[in-house]
Amino acid sequence: MRRDVTSKIVLDVTGQADLVFAVAVSSHYAPSTEEFTASIDGRRIDPSVVDDAHGTRLHRLSASPGRLEVRYRATVDEGEVATATETDLLVYTRPSRYAESDRLLPTAVAEFAGITDPVDLLAAVSSWVGTELAYVPGSSLPTDGAVRTLLDRRGVCRDYAHLCVALLRALNVPARLAAVYAPGLHPMDFHAVAEAWVDGAWRVVDATTLAPRQTLVRIATGRDAADTAFLTIVSGFANLVEMEVTATAESLPLDDITRLVQLA
């Protein structure tokens, strides 16, 4: 399936800044077209490309004060299926900054302890999180984790994904977060989903059900949002002025949360 993705990020850089962008499709794909450009007050600057874990490709920029504009576009078809090492499966069973699985163990056991089939468990967790939370743009803080999300009973895609990841880890199912382009998503933005290791493969869990899982395009993968943010300000100062994301696919298939879906 062919998918076309673009992003545009405009920042007001107020002091010399070291900036890292995670907007490129992961190395699981071989784009037929791809371009990353950056300019500060119209003057082009070149990034360094950093290979991160699980195929994540980062673009790092040293930006002087001014108006920074970053643009990315790519066209991809199907990619290579993601795999896992024994170390990966250990890491993704542990609690992390935004997925506090240790604190959510009592909730996970109370709600899902009787479900022994892993396929049924993924559907149950996705359905439960989607029912318990209300999707409210702007309702959460960048520092909110799964516990705060559950207490507030609302959030956005990263909050849904964090809660799914934490509950699955609490039940000894390796789980992680993936940042993606999501054809069909409305309103369009960068999207976040959970992935769980079931039956020897990473399976996508998206409790928001806002876009077909079959159309998603992987950008970054990690323990939680700390590893997958579209922008990391390593040093310096920069304010987001504008962001625009597009993602289209040849078709938007119907999605059924009881089906196992893999992301490249």
Rank of each mutant, 00 (worst) to 15 (best):
M1V: 15
M1A: 12
S7W: 08
A17R: 06
D18W: 05
L19N: 01
V20I: 12
A22D: 07
V25P: 08
V25R: 13
S26V: 09
H28Q: 11
H28D: 06
S32R: 15
F36M: 15
T37K: 10
S39R: 15
I45S: 01
V50R: 15
G55E: 10
H59C: 08
S62E: 09
A63K: 01
E78D: 12
E80V: 12
L90C: 04
T93D: 15
R94N: 09
P95Y: 08
S96N: 01
S101A: 15
V109P: 04
A110F: 02
F112R: 05
G114E: 12
G114V: 05
G114T: 10
D120E: 14
D120K: 15
L121I: 07
T131P: 00
E132C: 01
A134W: 06
P137G: 12
L141S: 13
P142N: 08
A146M: 06
T149E: 03
V156A: 14
Y160V: 08
L163E: 10
L163V: 09
L167S: 11
N172E: 07
V173Y: 06
V173K: 00
L177H: 01
P183K: 11
G184H: 03
A192G: 00
G200T: 04
G200R: 05
A201Q: 13
A201V: 02
D206C: 05
A207K: 07
T209Q: 14
L210K: 12
I219F: 05
R223W: 03
F230P: 13
F230G: 01
V234F: 02
V245T: 09
A249W: 05
I257H: 02
I257L: 06
I257F: 00
I257Q: 01
